[in-house]
């Protein structure tokens, strides 16, 4: 098996040796990525912080015994982060009552300007309403900027299936946010 080039290899080695500068560099490099992943997967800031912290804790435990060349550390960390998100999403489903939490579509309102924060909130709400796998595909490919092969491997699907999820997810977002398009009436 060919060795995998990993841009994090040296950093992980130094973290495993307890180098405090490397630990801080790892936090600067990976914590924002894990937080963004969890935030967009879970749509909850508090839970996202918990997941990001737990993912990095597992990274600290893994670093001393990390074997370079077998996998990219970033991909492994995404696997950890995704599994933590899956656990929480599964727990939510288990405790879901007959009345699922409301995620109202704010829709277009004539008195709402096109402030970036407003647009962002509407996009986040639309993302949260996507089917889980479509949201995951978009989060991994668009926001986390993983390659299609990495994302497909993490989701344990073929690249073709990943592309199908991406297409359906993007189409659903386009329809949900149709009123926000520049060419939409009244915007």
């Amino acid at each position: 098996m060919a060795l995998i080039a990993d841009p994090d290899e040296d950093l992980v080695r130094r973290v495993g040796q307890g180098d405090s500068a490397a630990i801080q560099a790892m936090v600067a490099r990976k914590l924002p990525r894990m937080l963004a992943l969890a935030q967009r997967m879970l749509g909850d800031a508090v839970e996202a912080e918990d997941v990001a912290q737990e993912a990095l804790l597992r990274a600290w435990k893994q670093a001393p015994r990390w074997q370079p060349g077998k996998a990219k550390f970033d991909t492994w960390l995404h696997r950890v982060g995704l599994n933590l998100c899956y656990d929480r999403l599964r727990r939510r489903r288990e405790i879901a009552t007959d009345m699922p939490p409301e995620r109202p579509d704010e829709g277009a309102a004539p008195d709402r300007g096109l402030l970036a924060a407003d647009v962002g909130r509407r996009v986040d709400a639309a993302l949260a309403r996507l089917p889980e796998r479509q949201r995951e595909a978009i989060v991994l490919c668009h926001y986390q900027e993983l390659t299609n092969i990495e994302a497909a491997a993490l989701m344990e699907v073929s690249v073709e299936a990943l592309e199908s999820l991406l297409s359906r997810g993007r189409r659903a977002l386009r329809l949900a946010l149709a009123d926000m398009r520049p060419d939409a009436e009244g915007v």
């Binding site: 924002p32 963004a36 912080e49 647009v119 509407r122 978009i138 668009h142």
Partner: peptide, 17 residues
């Protein structure tokens, strides 16, 4: 659609975290 996706703000890491 890309432009809409970009509008989603990336969460910021707090000093406490």
């Amino acid at each position: 659609v890309d432009a809409l996706l970009h509008a989603s703000a990336t969460p910021r890491v707090s000093m406490a975290l």
